[in-house]
Nucleic acid binder design. Sequence first.
DNA 1: ATATTTAATATTGTATACAATTAAATATTG
DNA 2: CAATATTTAATTGTATACAATATTAAATAT
Lengths: 221, 221
Amino acid sequence: MGIEHKTRTQLVAEAIREKILSGEIKAGEPLRQAALAEELNVSRIPVREALLQLEAEGLVNFEAHKGATATMLSADQIDEIFDLRALLEAELLRHSIVNLTPRDLLEAEAILYDLEEATAAGDTQLATGKLNAEFHVKLYSKANRPQTAELVAMYGKNSERYVRMHILLAGGIKTAPEEHRTLLEFCKAKDVNAACDFLKKHITGAKDDIKNLLVKMEQNQ
Amino acid sequence: MGIEHKTRTQLVAEAIREKILSGEIKAGEPLRQAALAEELNVSRIPVREALLQLEAEGLVNFEAHKGATATMLSADQIDEIFDLRALLEAELLRHSIVNLTPRDLLEAEAILYDLEEATAAGDTQLATGKLNAEFHVKLYSKANRPQTAELVAMYGKNSERYVRMHILLAGGIKTAPEEHRTLLEFCKAKDVNAACDFLKKHITGAKDDIKNLLVKMEQNQ
DNA sequence: ATATTTAATATTGTATACAATTAAATATTG
DNA sequence: CAATATTTAATTGTATACAATATTAAATAT
């Protein structure tokens, strides 16, 4: 049970990732190695390695000799990412549902309870962010599809900043709380097809909401 | 039209990638930075960066302080990867079919012709490798889904060594050539659902073939 | 002899220094 | 003045050197 010995590269990656997701570093903005290195009190080597990792996560574009920039997703790319999420998350759910125990379903319901309470309290940040993710992860938890789950996590992270932005600009996503409850009921009933179809629509709905905003922003520039 | 100035990191990545795909570096084998650096006449820095890239491609596992190893895919992981490919490639085809021009279909048929000739000549390496990939790529070429295509390319690369190995050990994949022709006919007829369903079965069939071999190999160890 | 420390070695992680490339600024020419 | 060279500065890419960690070998204790 040793102390976790995080490498500098990992710490730097976390720092830059958060800067991008929080919007402190805006999409398209160049990421200067020297500046980041100085700010984080490390040499450029771990910064470079962190940037490479973040490129693999889709948060950064790294072009040889030209440097790294935070990725700027066009409306089309957002569109595609959310389609991918719908496809992959439905696949996870399909494999998970049959293995979900009554215990799992109760835990999901407990999260849903918190989520509804947060929504009622007006905490859209918490509701659409952490709790929403927890609920979904719980439903997928018995899929036994680690690589698919990793992909889903990656795309989730990549969408996160746009969701956050959307919350800020549009005052939260209109995802009706009942949608989550409907999804849970389908899972309880072990109605695989209904649950997966509904999940796809659920994700696609969020997409349309965000995409509209993105299109407007692109026009304004 | 400048001379392509490939960075050392890119060259090293290509070299190591080929070593892994060709089987020169076996799955599970450790990749010593110093040894690779000396062999390729570079310092350890580009080697490290190349290893990070290859990790993103799924060809390498990189653990802090312990070093990198060529990924060893279990039968379960192969299973999941091929399921993912079936899902994603069907998605690409679904979006591409409607945009495929008669010209595209003729080009696909030309590749298929070469493929059948190679098969007849007994060149399973060429037929199941390059030409097979070309045929599929042609069918997906009008999908307009760059990120999905990138994923498919990645998983394709990751499966490649197992396909190669299978060809060596089992004398080629039994994928009936008629399967490709059937798929092409569905595309010509613009029968989206039939084509996608058939494609999924086509990929899943290849999976079962390879998986059987993998299971045997795991038992032998 | 086996288990547990301690020392030695090998290997990875990171800072510094320098080389290569690109972008910006200045000079040059039609 | 516009367009093109030429120089300068900024930035990235990579080698070398050293620090931190993990692995192996030796030493000690049980």
